[in-house]
Simulated scan of single mutants.
Amino acid sequence: MTLTFEADPAVDQALTDGILALWADVTNAGGAVGFVPPVTRDDIRPALRRHLTGMAQGTHRLLVGRDEDGAIAATAVFAFNGHRLMTHWVWLYTVMVHPKHQGKGYGRDLMAAVEHTARTAPGFEAVEAIRLGVRGGTGVDSFYAKAGYKEVGRVPGGIRVAPGDDRDDITMLLPLT
């Protein structure tokens, strides 16, 4: 079974609750998506609110993947660059696949859907590349490399997970042209 992907889904309570549940589950399973476990949905709510506000303002776009039951099983958030000299690339945030679905190839499917969306969806015509930040020490940079992303920058110790646990902040890029 594969995921069904949708760009720019209607924002309602079910979507919000589904993303909050996914984000908390991914974080609590050790995923590097902006938080350190343990977290609750309430801990994550302000970060999701910022994404949703960006969507309402047209600066962010959401891609969701739903499993065979219709539950939100994967997400990625595109953030358009507001700097007038950098509008030719977008940031990618909150890339997640639910832990119960990991190991099924859904991460590859999500990254293929991300690339497809950036290449074909209305509003992405000027986008020539996707950038994303990766927390070092997780091994996820090799996953993104397999999806075609190249490391283009690294700040040693740029992410402090906990006192005495600093990780590299890795920037990766996928050219679309």
Results as ranks from 00 to 15, higher is better:
119 R>N: 07
122 P>A: 11
9 P>A: 04
46 P>N: 10
115 E>L: 01
133 G>C: 11
81 N>D: 12
103 G>D: 10
134 V>L: 01
22 L>T: 05
78 F>A: 00
1 M>S: 13
115 E>G: 03
58 G>T: 11
14 A>T: 08
85 L>N: 14
135 R>P: 03
157 G>E: 06
15 L>P: 05
71 A>D: 11
89 W>R: 14
139 G>H: 08
89 W>N: 11
142 S>A: 06
5 F>A: 00
165 D>C: 07
44 I>Q: 05
158 G>H: 04
68 E>C: 08
123 G>M: 10
159 I>E: 00
104 K>C: 10
176 L>C: 02
45 R>H: 01
96 M>D: 01
162 A>T: 14
9 P>Q: 12
97 V>A: 07
97 V>S: 06
71 A>Y: 08
60 H>N: 11
130 I>V: 09
120 T>W: 00
117 T>L: 02
152 V>Q: 12
102 Q>A: 08
39 V>R: 11
120 T>C: 09
26 V>K: 02
91 W>V: 09
71 A>N: 11
116 H>S: 13
175 P>R: 14
85 L>W: 14
7 A>F: 01
59 T>M: 02
27 T>D: 01
28 N>M: 09
103 G>Y: 14
85 L>E: 14
65 G>N: 02
164 G>W: 06
164 G>Q: 12
132 L>D: 00
82 G>A: 13
96 M>P: 10
165 D>N: 14
161 V>A: 07
32 A>R: 01
147 A>Q: 15
51 H>I: 04
